[in-house]
Each structure stands twice: as C-alpha cells, then as structure tokens.
C-alpha cells in the first residue's frame, strides 16, 4: 500500500513503470486475484461509465424525479453541434460526458463511483477528452482508471473523500486531482508530472463546500463535475508544459484534510448552508419534501 504520493512517485521512478502498472500489481498482491481478473473488473467499470455517458447525452437526456436536474447534458451537446463553442469542441464534449453521468446518477441510474457518486462525472469527462484529443486506446482508458485509483487511495487514506467529512473539495476536488494525474500519464508524462497535475488540480478546488439543495445530489453537483473535468484538463496541460505547483502533492492533501476538518457542519452535506440555505434553495426543499 502506498503511504504517500511521494512514495508512489519514487516507486514508479525506481521501477521505470507507469503508476497504473504499480497499482495493478499492488491490487493483485492485496486481493489475491490475478492480473486478468483485476484488469477485467476495471474494464467492466469503464463500460458502466461509458454507458452512463451515452444514456445521459442521447436524445433529450435523463431527468431526475424531483425535476431539479436533467436534460442539460443533452442540451449542451446539441449546442456544441449547432454553434461555435467558446471553450472548444473537445472541452465541451468532455463537459457533456461529465454532466451526463451525474444526471444519470441523480435520476437513480447505474453509475460507477469515482471516487464517489457525487463526483462520478469528472473522470468520464476527462477520459472522453483524451479519446477525442489524443485518440486514447481502450487499454489506455482502463489504465487511466488505475492511475486515478492509486492517487485516490492515498487521498482517501490520508485525508477524506466524503462530502460529509470534507466538503466538495474532498469529492469533486479529489476526483479532479485524480483525473489530472491520469490524464498526464495517458499523454506520456512521467510520474512526477502526474503528481504536479494532481497537486495543482486539488489546490484549485480547496475550500469547495458541499451544499446540496434539498440534500439532493443534483444542484450544484452536476455542474461541479463539469468544473472538475475542465480543471483536470487545464492542470494536466500546465503540468505537461513544465509548470509546477510549488506546494508538493502530499502537503496539498494535508491542507485539504485540515480545511475539511475546519468546515462547519452546515457546509458538509447537510443541505443546510450555502446554496441549500438560499431563499430559492430552501423553497425547493419545501416543494420537494413539504417542510
């Protein structure tokens, strides 16, 4: 088990292998399963992610029972096809995938939590961009999930990944950082560059609170995944260009943890403060639950 991101990077540098390969080996050793078993389980997880993207972006999309979310991934995709987008076609396709996944989640569809259900769109968004932009193979996409998982394990064990304990920075912040590291490996970056991208992406989302309207995983969660995806791609590019975060990844994780612990309960997945506590947010709660 990797105790820190520094350990992960130095192990990968010593063995000359990508972080995804180290994660696969570690998983085999820890679970007693073969490489084929571990690989095919991850391959199935990728299938679930891609199916959710398809379901949420096709036709008019999907809608939650409450009416708070749905249909906007499909709307964004239609806009992309008909108009000149401001952030570019690859980026908008990635945002469609991210939002589609979380709209499926809100509509009680099947998703793969990465690392959580609330942040399940971020990684599929980034994988969609990598497929579009660098023609990433199926094998490369599965590898992305192992790389992301390695960084996520360190984050979960050294800080937290639940909105109720650390706010949205622990969910979408972690997902975005994991995805940034995975994108760097997919684009041919070395392990230290993965760690820089991770550190940057997490730094950018530090302090983000978990303030779901009516306590539902809809507003602002769906669009928070769009920012998680965009942030991951931006930070991967900055890291690949040679930019560094100055504060090392492990210390950013420590900072995320201490910020999470300092957050009041009203901003940790209680549906009380922040956007949930606005007049319109409170009104939604009354309309949906009658109190």
């Amino acid at each position: 088990m990797f105790g820190s991101i520094a350990d992960l990077v130095s192990a990968a540098e010593e063995s000359g292998e990508p972080i995804s390969e180290l994660m696969i080996r570690e998983e085999c050793a820890g679970s007693g399963r073969t490489r084929d078993q571990v690989w095919s389980r991850m391959d199935r997880d990728l299938d679930v992610m891609l199916a959710a993207v398809k379901r949420g972006s096709e036709g008019r999309g999907v809608f939650s029972k409450t009416g708070l979310s749905g249909g906007e991934a499909a709307l964004l995709d239609k806009y992309r096809r008909e108009r000149t987008t401001l952030s570019g076609d690859t980026m908008v396709r990635a945002l469609v995938a991210a939002m589609a996944t979380n709209e499926v989640n809100a509509a009680m569809g099947v998703i793969c939590a990465t690392p959580t259900a609330g942040s399940s769109g971020t990684l599929p968004g980034v994988i969609t961009a990598l497929r579009e932009r660098i023609d990433l193979s199926r094998e490369g996409q599965v590898r992305c999930l192992f790389t992301a998982g390695a960084f996520g394990l360190v984050t979960a064990n050294n800080a937290m990944i639940a909105g109720a304990t650390g706010g949205c920075q622990a969910e979408v912040g972690s997902a975005s950082a994991m995805a940034a590291a995975a994108a760097v490996e997919a684009a041919g970056g070395d392990p230290q560059t993965c760690a820089e991208a991770f550190a940057m992406a997490m730094s950018n989302l530090l302090g983000l609170v978990c303030d779901p309207v009516a306590g539902l995983v809809e507003v602002p969660c769906v669009k928070r995944n769009a920012i998680g995806t965009a942030n991951a791609l931006i930070c991967a590019d900055i890291a690949l260009s040679g930019g560094t975060n100055k504060i090392p990844a492990d210390q950013v994780v420590e900072a995320m943890k201490s910020i999470g612990e300092a957050m009041p309960a009203s901003l940790r997945e209680t549906g009380v403060g922040g956007l949930a506590g606005t007049p319109v947010g409170s009104e939604f709660r009354k309309t949906i639950f009658g109190d």
Binding site: N105, I111, C112, T114, L153, A156
Partner: peptide, 26 residues
C-alpha cells in the same frame, strides 16, 4: 499501518444505483 481503503476498487467503484456513494451505496 493499513489504510481504511485497501483496494483500487474502493476508489473506482462501486458500480451502483445513484445518487450518493456514502448515503446510498454505503
């Protein structure tokens, strides 16, 4: 020291019905 999360599939996964990994799948 063994972490609380041991497997890559604790992070990538579970495959689940939404909406929340902690409040629904957990």
């Amino acid at each position: 020291m063994m972490g609380k999360y041991r497997s890559v599939f604790d992070i990538i996964g579970p495959v689940m019905i939404g909406p929340s990994s902690s409040h629904t799948a957990g």
